[in-house]
Amino acid sequence: MIQKTKRNYTILTVVFTFLCIVWVYPIVTILLNSLKDTKSITTRDVFNLPNSKTFAGISNYVESITGMNFLRSFFFSLLISLTSVALILLCCSMAAWYVVRVNSLIAKIFYYLCIFSMVVPFQMVMFTLATTADRIKLNTPYNICVIYLGFGAGLAVFMFTGFVKSIPLEIEEAAMIDGCSPIQTYFKVLVPILKPTIISTAILETMWVWNDYLLPTLVLDIKKYRTIPMAIQYFRGSYGTVNMGAMMASIMIDIIPIIIMYLVCQKYIIEGVIAGAVKG
C-alpha cells in the first residue's frame, strides 16, 4: 500500500511539473519575443523561437528605455508606491490605535466608514475623485500619495485595528506610567509589536499601488507624468503602428523587478495574503 501511494505521488509530481511549465509559459513567450527584432513579432510568428535572422539582442530594451522614456515612468511608479505606502502605514496604524483605545462615537463612525469604503468599487467615485484631486492640486506624482491614503485607508485601518485589539492594554499603560508621551508610546511600544501586520499591510498596499492603472490615469496629467501601467497602455492604445519589440521589452522591464522582489520576500508576501484574506 505504501508503494502504491509513492507511485501516486510520483505521478502527481509529473502532472504538477507539466502544469507549472504551462503556468510560466506566457512569460517565457514574452521574454523570447522581446529578443526578436520588431518585424518578426507578428501574431503568426509569436511562437517561433528567435533565430540568427530574427535575433535582436537587447536592442528592444534600449529602444524601450530611450524611446519610450521608460526609466522616467519607472521612477514615477517607484516614487508613488514608496510615498503612498509609507504614508498609509504611518497614518493608518496611528488612526487604528486611536480608534481602538479611544472608542468614542466619532472613532466608531470613522471605523465603520472605513469598512464600508472597502466594498465600494472605484468606478463609483472615479469622476468626482479626479475632479476633487484636480481642484485642490493633488495631481502630481509628488502628492498623489494623499489620495492613495484616502482611498486605501479602509483596508489598512481594518487590518491594524484587528491586530491592535489583541494587544493587552497593560503594556501601553506601563509605558505611560513610566513617563512616555503618547507619541513615544506609539513609536517605542506599539510599532515594534505591530511589525508583522505592518509588513503584511505594506505588501498588500504595494501590490495595489504599483499595479494601479485607473486612479493615476484619471488624476495625473498623462502628457507629463506616466507610471508604468499608464506608459504601457498609452503606448499600446495609441493609433498607428506599434513598436512590438519595445512593447515586449517594456513588459519584461515591468515584470522582472516584481519577480525578483517576490522571490526575495516570498514568505512575507504569502503571509500577507493569508492575513489579508482571513481578516477581509
Binding site: 488612526a95 470613522f110 469604503s117 467615485v125 468626482t128 475623485l129 484631486a133 484616502g150 485607508a153 507619541i183
Partner: peptide, 22 residues
C-alpha cells in the same frame, strides 16, 4: 490632531466627499 486627523482628512478627500458627491 496627530493620530486621527491626517487619515480622517485624507479619507474625506479621497473617499467620503467623492462618494457623496457622486
Amino acid at each position: 490632531p496627530i493620530f486621527l486627523l491626517p487619515t480622517a482628512a485624507a479619507f474625506c478627500i479621497g473617499f467620503l466627499w467623492p462618494f457623496v458627491w457622486g
